[in-house]
Design a protein around this nucleic acid. Structure first.
Length: 1096
RNA sequence: AGUCUCGUAGCUCAGUUGGUUAGAGCACUACACUGAUAAUGUAGGGGUCGGCAGUUCAAAUCUGCCCGAGACUACCA
């Protein structure tokens, strides 16, 4: 009977499937939560994905991070509930529906009803839900998908309304008419965080114009004219020529120096006088292809220009629209926003298309012109430009740039000083990729600026990973906070629950369905109508509800929807339908201990959670947050479907398994650094960690089964009674447990993974198992064997627990395999408690000794290599100069390990090393530098040149005096390190102060033993390749090459024991031929040897 | 344009408060070891630590400027 299952090979994807089945069958996820106490919670919030698109490999990354810290805290005994969620509203969904139906925003409400349209949105939103569920399952992300929160459900919406009402009550919700980023292509205003989506700002080449505004003669302007007929024009630069028809003012800097330059118009060649900032004249005049300066006036301040009037540049007879009742136009204003960093020092001002422009216009009683409509085209009253799109919003085949045509017109009319292409950053709509316009719009705002200081304060209490994302990126964002534009003039989203009278004097914000019902009853009674609370709170139904004002007038709903980011930022409350249900549940689960998303959410979800939480509850929404970087392709390019370099997460998981993929992603680079995703890296993780663990387990299982040893063995020796090397690996293990816990508590999973890899590979597999193989397969079950089994078993079980957060499948498979017949083992590694470090097992001295053993072994092997002395050939002795008091005692305890590892018979120590070992003295720069300062270099030279005698004296006295420029310094042992370097007449190697010498003298006995070991090796190889069982007994015949007979004579018993042979002899005729049972294998120096191995 | 992060071997990454000759893994070459191993050991090639200055006895590390990458901020025309 086999206690421990033995496998035929490692297949991670198969393990995934097997474990998934087990988890589901035995409800392991549910148990992992339910078995933990209610009162010891660790709260996690799931940032809702949208099932509107396919999951990508970067989702595997970000969800692995969420998953692993939840699993880790589960192992630490916390109850970690993970409610899933879906983000269901928003522009991406609407746009995909528009595209599918082949309609535009204008058609909604006309060719398709809002009701039908929203129904399509609702269908579309869960389009890829099954793919998402599939990847969630396959990647091993434990999240509750049975009871997710869904942002389009009435209950969710009601909670959001509750929050909005709270904001309204606090006076934090207001309506304003401001210049806002607006996407004509999407037909909606954009919030500042949408504008700050990665990639929104694009480098574009625009036509820029320096336009010339003709000054009207007047008393104020008199000083600008040298004579009656002078053509005086003010130069203003713009990167958006399409705003020039809407120009109503020019702005100058009051303290900037301006001059008038006499020149000729470069396009019409007529004389003209141009006014611009003195500092910028050189940018526009006198260069190649630039007009010449005929004369230049003395300078005057910008304030002198104030009030000067000019002729409209492109006058199509449109009436000036009032701003704050002001309707003045075509005059020079002054403002502090004007600089001389580029342009002409005079700013073309179109108050409808610029925030600064509107501000100065309002301050000066100037009106505006809005000659562009909401679809992004000129109105019908703009002369030759009427009806043309100001930017290419429709992907027209032969779109001609209006900017260029305006520039041409200005050129021909002598109204341009310069026209050129200019490259600059301009914001684009993140959904449509089209340039944004700044447009005056009515919008509802959340007055986040009112709680700015509190948000900054609270942010300081949040633990950000990495810290700079919170301190710098998020911190700076909060410092420069603007009010949050909540309005979206779309259809599929949470309706703003605000009703207003027509004149806007009375408004009401509804915070619950009950409140709405009452308000409807009141309205029905007052207005004599019959309406009900709609079954669906979305548009268009909610739009039909009319409420009544205190003085009996009808109130209509503001038609805006709210920003979807408000939806997701409301999830801490709305996921529980707080405060209408689950008040206790909410209180237990707020704020979150942990959230994690991509760093691109800094201004998205991270912000909206923080903002709503601060405003409504005066609390943080989360205490710890991990922001992860992007997943790039292996060349560092951004993954995109268009480039075809996007890794398919399903294929990746299918091919390598979830664990290797997860382990690779988290161990390769810190999560917040961008990851260059390379499949070879996954293979490396498979080899380095999973194969090694698999092989270590297989080794254990093979011999434990042979011995019928089980982990519940009651006669295992206590750790103190186990051999040095067992105590060493346990000391290493418990050191690892300590470090692992502290890394993971600090959310540093990468360092934790790397530590585990180091332990598994270097310590456990390559040292502990390799050196202990004989203990496992030699002889009958003994206390020593029990100790070895128990030690290795403990290491593997502990490792399986520690890797389980990152590698949930393999770890559980390993843990399950290690259970054997032990009834004490639990159903799943995910139901266990994390191992705790036992301080009694930590032994620094032991680790130091073992380090010496490894180092000395390595040095001996390097000498062997240099001398071409193969390891099977035994040597007599190692010579070790004793470097300190503890050294010899240390080595004595690991002596046997070294000797067997390097195949040498003994170690001798040299204590009185003077005269035998040649040494060098090394200055300790750290201690000496502080004392000696600039004399350091000289001192270092003196120390390095100390001769053997001086070093010997220093070693005895412990002090050495040096004189530098008349000053004397006494150096002690701390200041000078003495290192053995060479032992004349010996083969020597040294490293880090440890020197070893090897006696390489050979004699017949050593040669015979060496030959015997070579023979054992060949025979073992033959046993293995001919398929013999480990326990089969054999009889051996060997071809008597040189040295063979001596080896058999001297070491026959040894060979027989090692190879389980009953007898060994040489062939009678020296080299028999034609016998197929004879193997011919490589022998020394390129020879071949014939050996016959026969099963008895 | 500004802010932040970053730039170390062909690749992926370490590098403690400044300290001597800058490391590991992968990959490559040769040799060795192995009755657990797709593993491992030894040796080798491979680096102006992005560049230039500066501070210091001493700089991959600190400072300044520049170059390059990325993210963020910003419609100043």
């Amino acid at each position: 009977m086999k206690l421990y299952p033995e496998y035929k090979g490692l297949n991670l994807p198969d393990i995934d499937k097997k474990m998934l089945q087990q988890w589901e069958e035995h409800k392991i996820f549910e148990k992992s939560i339910e078995q933990r106490p209610e009162e010891k919670r660790w709260v996690f919030y799931e940032g809702p994905p949208s099932a509107n698109g396919m999951p990508g490999i970067h989702h595997v990354m970000s969800r692995a991070i969420k998953d692993l810290f939840c699993r880790y805290h589960t192992l630490k005994g916390y109850r970690v509930e993970r409610k899933g969620g879906w983000d269901t509203h928003g522009l991406p969904i609407e746009l995909s529906v528009e595209k599918k139906l082949g309609i535009t925003k204008d058609d909604i409400g006309k060719s398709i009803s809002i009701e039908d349209y929203n129904a399509r949105c609702k269908e579309t939103v869960m389009q890829f839900k099954s793919e998402w569920d599939d990847i969630t399952r396959k990647m091993g992300y434990w999240v509750d998908l049975h009871n997710p929160y869904i942002t389009y459900e009435n209950e969710y919406i009601e909670s959001v309304w509750f929050l909005l009402e709270k904001l309204h009550d606090k006076g934090l919700l207001y309506k304003g008419y401001t210049i806002q980023p607006y996407s004509p292509a999407a037909g909606t205003g954009l919030s500042s965080h949408e504008l700050n989506m990665p990639g929104a700002y694009k480098e574009v080449k625009d036509t820029t114009v320096v336009a010339l505004f003709k000054v009207t003669k007047s008393a104020d302007a008199g000083f600008l004219f040298d004579d009656e007929n002078e053509d005086v024009r003010i130069a203003a630069w713009t990167t958006t020529p399409w705003t020039l028809p809407s120009n109503t003012a020019l702005s100058a800097g009051p303290n900037i120096d301006y001059v008038k330059v006499k020149t000729s118009n470069p396009y019409t060649h007529t004389p003209v006088s141009v006014i611009m900032a003195e500092a910028l004249v050189a940018n526009w005049f006198g260069g190649k292809n630039q007009p010449l300066i005929e004369s230049q006036s003395t300078s005057f301040k910008g304030s002198a220009l104030k009030g000067i009037r000019y002729e409209p540049l492109l006058d199509y007879g449109n009436p000036i629209e009032p701003l704050l009742e002001g309707t003045d136009a075509y005059l020079v204003l002054t403002g502090d926003h004007v600089t001389t960093s580029d342009g002409t020092g005079i700013v073309h001002t179109a108050p409808s298309f610029g925030a600064d422009d509107q501000r100065v216009a309002k301050a000066n009683g100037v009106g505006t012109l809005t000659l562009v409509d909401l679809s992004g085209k000129f109105k019908e009253s703009v002369g030759p430009f009427s009806g043309r799109y100001v930017k290419d919003y429709k992907d027209e085949v032969d779109y001609a740039s209006v900017d260029v045509d305006i520039a041409i017109l200005l050129k021909t009319e002598g109204k341009a000083l310069n026209v050129q292409k200019y490259e600059h950053n301009y914001p684009h709509c993140w959904r449509t990729d089209k340039p944004v316009l700044y447009y005056p719009m009515d919008s509802w705002f959340v007055k986040t600026t009112a709680v700015k200081e509190r948000m900054i304060e609270l942010n300081k209490t949040i633990n950000w990973k990495p810290a700079h994302t919170g301190e710098k990126r998020f911190g700076n964002w909060l410092e420069n906070l603007q009010d949050w534009n909540l309005s979206r003039s779309r259809f599929w989203g949470i309706p703003l629950p605000i009703w207003r009278t027509e004149d806007g004097h009375e408004e009401r914000c509804i915070g619950s369905i009950d409140e709405l019902a009452k308000a409807i009853d009141d309205a029905n009674a007052a207005l004599g109508i019959k309406q009900y609370v709609p079954a669906d709170l979305h548009r268009p139904f909610i739009d039909e509800v009319i409420l009544v004002s205190t003085d009996g007038r009808p109130m209509k709903r503001e038609t805006d929807l709210i920003d979807v980011w408000f939806d997701s930022g409301s999830m801490p409350y709305a996921q529980w339908h707080y405060p209408f249900d689950n008040v206790d549940v909410f209180k237990r689960n707020y704020p979150a201990d942990f959230i994690a998303e991509g760093v691109d959410q800094t201004r998205g979800w991270f912000f909206t959670l923080h903002a709503i939480s601060t405003m409504v509850f005066d609390s943080v929404a989360y205490k710890n947050v991990v922001s992860n970087g992007l997943v790039l392709d292996k060349n560092g390019q951004k993954m995109s479907k268009r480039l075809g370099n996007a890794a398919d997460p399903f294929k990746t998981l299918e091919k390598y398994g979830a664990d290797a993929t997860r382990w690779y992603m988290l161990s390769n680079a810190q999560p917040w650094d961008n990851l260059k995703f390379d499949e070879e890296g996954i293979q490396e993780s498979t080899r380095k960690l999973f194969s090694t663990l698999y092989n270590t387990y297989s080794f254990f299982a093979l011999y434990a089964n042979l011995d019928k040893w089980s982990a519940d063995d009651t006669s295992i020796p206590g750790v103190a009674d186990r051999p040095e090397i067992d105590r060493w690996i346990l000391s290493r293990l418990h050191t690892l447990i300590n470090a692992y816990r502290s890394d993971m508590d600090d959310f540093d999973v990468t360092t934790a993974c790397r530590r585990i890899e180091l332990f598994v590979n270097d310590h456990l597999s390559n040292w502990y198992v390799r050196l202990n193989r004989r203990r496992f397969w030699k002889g009958e079950l003994s206390d020593d064997k029990r100790a070895a089994y128990a030690t290795l078993h403990e290491c593997l079980v502990s490792v399986s627990k520690m890797i389980s957060p990152v590698a949930p499948f393999f770890s559980d498979w390993l843990y399950g395999s290690l259970a054997g017949a032990d009834a004490n083992q639990l159903e799943s590694v995910h139901l266990t408690d994390l191992p705790t470090s036992d301080a009694a097992l930590l032994d620094e001295a032991l680790i130091r000794r073992m380090d010496y053993a490894q180092q000395i072994s390595s040095l001996i092997l390097s000498i062997r290599k240099k001398e071409k002395l193969r390891v099977r050939l035994p040597l007599r002795r190692i010579l070790l100069p004793v470097i300190n008091n503890q050294f010899q005692a240390d080595i004595e305890q690991v002596k046997e390990l070294i000797l067997s590892e390097v195949n040498v018979k003994g170690i001798e120590y040299i204590t009185d090393t003077a005269g035998i070992v040649s040494k060098i003295a090394k200055p300790n720069f750290k201690t000496l530098g502080k004392r000696l300062g600039k004399n350091m270099k000289l001192a270092a030279g003196i120390i390095q040149e100390m001769d053997q005698e001086a070093i010997a004296k220093f070693e005895i006295d412990g002090t050495f005096a040096i004189d530098i420029e008349g000053e004397s310094f006494a150096l002690d042992r701390e200041d000078i390190e003495v290192v053995s370097e060479d032992i004349p007449g010996w083969q020597v190697a040294s490293e880090d102060g440890v020197t070893v010498a090897l006696d390489i003298t050979l004699d017949d006995e050593l040669r015979a033993e060496g030959t015997a070991r070579e023979l054992v090796n060949r025979i073992q190889n033959i046993r293995k390749s001919s398929g013999l069982e480990v326990t089969d007994r054999i009889s051996i015949l060997v071809e008597p090459l040189e040295g063979i007979e001596e080896a058999i004579a001297g070491y026959g018993a040894y060979i027989k024991t090692e190879t389980l042979a009953d007898d060994i002899a040489v062939f009678a005729p020296k080299s028999p031929k034609g016998d197929s049972s004879i193997a011919k294998v490589d022998w020394l120096e390129g020879e071949e040897i014939s050996i016959r191995v026969e099963k008895i």
